[in-house]
Design a protein around this nucleic acid. Sequence first.
DNA 1: CTGTTAGCGCGTTCAA
DNA 2: TTGAACGCGCTAACAG
Lengths: 337, 337
Amino acid sequence: MTRNVTIRDIARAAGVSISTVSRALNGQVPVAPDKRQRVLDATRRLGYEPNAAAQGLVRGRTMTVGVLTQDIASPFYSEVSRGIDAGLAGSGYQPIFVNGHWEIQDEAAAITALTRRQVDAVIVLGGRLDARQLRDLHARVPLVVVGRQVPGLDDACLSVDNVQGAFLATTHLLQLGHRRIAHVAGIPSQRDAVDRLEGYRLALAEAGVPFDPALVFEGNFNEASGIQAVEHWLGRAAHFSAVFAANDQMAYGVGLGLYRRGMRVPEDVSLVGFDDLPASQFTLPPLTTVHHPAREMGELAARHLLARLNDPGAPAELPQLPITLSVRESVRFARSP
Amino acid sequence: MTRNVTIRDIARAAGVSISTVSRALNGQVPVAPDKRQRVLDATRRLGYEPNAAAQGLVRGRTMTVGVLTQDIASPFYSEVSRGIDAGLAGSGYQPIFVNGHWEIQDEAAAITALTRRQVDAVIVLGGRLDARQLRDLHARVPLVVVGRQVPGLDDACLSVDNVQGAFLATTHLLQLGHRRIAHVAGIPSQRDAVDRLEGYRLALAEAGVPFDPALVFEGNFNEASGIQAVEHWLGRAAHFSAVFAANDQMAYGVGLGLYRRGMRVPEDVSLVGFDDLPASQFTLPPLTTVHHPAREMGELAARHLLARLNDPGAPAELPQLPITLSVRESVRFARSP
DNA sequence: CTGTTAGCGCGTTCAA
DNA sequence: TTGAACGCGCTAACAG
């Protein structure tokens, strides 16, 4: 393409030095009004845009915050990203998103890409990067980890009490009289999954309902594993009146699996999810689910980083966001046996 | 944080000049094996990462392609983005995503942000930017516009034949005996919406079914407007046996609206969507919908740009991707009247 | 094969 | 208030 117009072109066109152009544009230092005007005119006329890379090089700040997400099309992380976008709006900082694909190597490569781009801060959404790598990163740049609790990085982690959320969901079912509650768990290597299973067990224990391993199916957080769970249970004639899925996507799958077998939600089986994705308001029936404040977490992470960027001495403390249950229509009283 | 380690630190540590470091790392020019090794060692030991901004400055290429998307959490554009991500994988180019929020001003600001960052190419997903702005952009940097057909920019646009897609959907319904087919249209200022309405009308005309304006509801591409459409029709006792929604999200809303009124899909009403979002495989029932090759479009856009970046003289031609119907379970024969 | 040097575009001293 | 000059970190001639 044609060579970009640079500050020198503007200087020449306005008949001033490049430092005057710089000053007129950045507006910290006083500049004679007429010269300022000439610079502004030339800028507009030639369509000048300062080169961000050059600015970053000399200023030592690039005004970007890197966001490592796992899958740009994952509904849950998209919500967090949207929050980040909103939290950064108007701050002058720009998010740059990279994908880790839930693969340690991709994640590491993505972090490297961010580092090379000299991002001023980093937000990591989930992922498998181990604690050491994250601590190393934290040592080089302000960091917030969303959706994970990393040992030794507590004040940089923003997550929700998953045990509590699952407890809430299960208790809701229990209070409605359900006793045979099945659970579609998530990937056991992910802490969230483990915690949610834990919350489920805790709630059962508290209600004096025995835990039955046959009612737990290990899924992978995708819709398909919800279907598999139903097939699995029905194939072995397991008996249950409710299902708690470790995320909404698996709950959708459960709904479909049940439908395929001619069973209705909530008439035959009650169903509760986890995450409260926007889509869950529109499923058939609308899904009762644990509300995960994804959007808010993103926004909070962004604002927190901005605060630290503007005042490195600012106290770190990230609050833990409350988790609630969104009660909709996928749950009913258990029929008396 | 602590000052970054630079090429000079490596040079010192390895006892060579900075140009040797550069050469050893970039590996185009021959370097003595022992020196190369010393450089590599120092690099690893000090954790050196080249500053991408500085590289970009001198090379004139930043190895990034800017992606202007509208809403990072929109299921459709996420799919396209995922395709872009895949298409760029391994090329050395990195996508950087910015959001336009379907607001001309935000879009313009986002483009400016990309320009300032000296992106080597741009992909625009939808949006409201007018043809002039896009042509200006095209003049400065290789560009592909996905999901829109911009006058005067034909060889840079990648979209699908929306008329044809809607025609396919409507014809499918007609062939199954439906005569009263309602349509939830999209935002009339968006070309896709207009084209899909057009395809619907064309199909009706070809089948000799009169067009009834009372059966068209103008939605806004969100789930909620699907519900509204149903309320609207039922409120005026409109009579229909099938609904074609201009996108899947509105189709979900239609499904829910119908459910609220005690009507079942497909037993009482047949339903067809447009886009074939991943979620449509798991709705109740799985949705028959026009398959929009979103992922492929993203990938194609990326590869196309890569080709042009590597060989600016390469022929431009972007193919038009075929559009098909994904037949699932939301459609049935019309009951004889 | 290697070191020295000249910029890439910009912000920021330092003098004037 | 302004311009000249320096340097941010790096690559690419240019001499050796």
